[in-house]
Computed example of a mutant assay.
Amino acid sequence: MSSPTPAPATAPQTGLAVLIALLLVYVVWGSTYLGIRIALDHGMPPLLVTSGLRFVVAGSVMFGFLRLRGVAAPTRKQWPTIMVMAALLLGMGNGLVVLAETTVSSGLAAVAVASMPVWMGLFGMLRGQRATRGEWIGIVLGFIGVVWLNAGGTLTGSPLGLVCLLVAPIAWAFGSVWSRGRDLPSPFMAAASQMLCGGVLIMLAGALRGERISAWPPLEGVLAVSYLAVFGSVIAFTAYVWLLHNVRPALAGSYAYVNPVIAVALGAWLAHERFTAHDLGAMAVILSGVVVINLARVRAK
């Protein structure tokens, strides 16, 4: 999902509401990597269904609901921006992660995606944003972790996974930074529109890749994709947008270093995934870099 620009908090929120929203973002988004793994293991085409159809369904539900509530649809000038964001954030950011999981574990995919804030910091500097010393330290740590992760261990045995997991967080970060200050509809409508556009683009890519549904998929695969669409794309994202509008941005964005831990734990527990010391060491360095970046931003504010 994209990260809408947070608005100032309008009123104090109860600690219970914040806790529930955080748990949804932490646990549900952290579990989507395992959900992708289950869908793929039960024969669901990676781009055509597991990623593309998921976003088409979720985007259609959100778009229709918002229109019924009277929320304005994107204007003709806003659609091109939404299309670019959909291609970068969902088409490349999510689609490539799903492709990667055809050859690598769900936990390892989550670890690689955790480097996204590092790339966001770099692209932000290229746009003229000055980085503090703490942010520089975090960026350097994150890059060391990314190089370590890609230099050996599990990823070296999967060229497709290596390329996908290197490009995916870069595309997501570039799209997030590029979108700042652009003319966009309200945050929820922007998300729904991106899911619709992104889902169609991913499904087209899947069709061009030769993906087909040759038989009725097993129930487990259908349930996994349904979980990704309803909980991962609608419920958890709604909770994330609510957090952006009601708590500190650093707290809302803390999912970046919580999701990989949950994904690794669930992968090891439910999918019996195994990780080398190399993988776990790279994960620790990447996550430490992300934590340092977030702490530096909080101190700067």
Rank of each mutant, 00 (worst) to 15 (best):
P117S: 12
P117T: 12
V118D: 03
W119Y: 07
W119L: 04
G121H: 08
G121M: 05
L122N: 06
F123C: 02
M125I: 06
L126V: 08
L126N: 01
L126P: 08
R127S: 03
Q129D: 14
Q129N: 05
Q129A: 11
R130H: 12
A131M: 09
T132R: 13
T132K: 08
R133N: 05
G134Q: 09
G134H: 04
I137K: 05
G138H: 10
G138N: 10
G138A: 00
G138D: 07
G138M: 00
I139Q: 03
V140Y: 00
V140R: 00
V140L: 15
L141I: 04
L141Y: 03
G142C: 11
G142V: 01
G142M: 07
G142A: 13
F143W: 13
V146N: 03
V146D: 02
V146L: 02
V147P: 02
V147C: 12
L149I: 14
A151G: 10
G152S: 07
G152N: 01
G153M: 12
G153R: 11
T154Q: 12
L155D: 03
L155V: 08
T156V: 15
T156C: 09
G157D: 10
G157R: 02
S158Y: 01
P159D: 10
P159A: 08
L160A: 13
L160M: 05
L160E: 01
G161E: 11
G161N: 12
L162T: 11
V163M: 09
C164A: 09
C164W: 12
L166Y: 12
V167S: 06
A168I: 11
I170P: 05
I170Q: 13
W172G: 07
F174M: 05
G175R: 13
G175Y: 03
G175E: 15
G175A: 15
V177G: 03
V177S: 05
W178E: 04
R180A: 02
R182V: 07
L184G: 05
L184V: 07
L184W: 07
S186C: 05
S186Q: 12
P187Q: 02
A190Q: 14
A191K: 02
A192Y: 03
S193H: 04
M195Y: 06
M195A: 03
L196P: 01
L196F: 05
C197H: 01
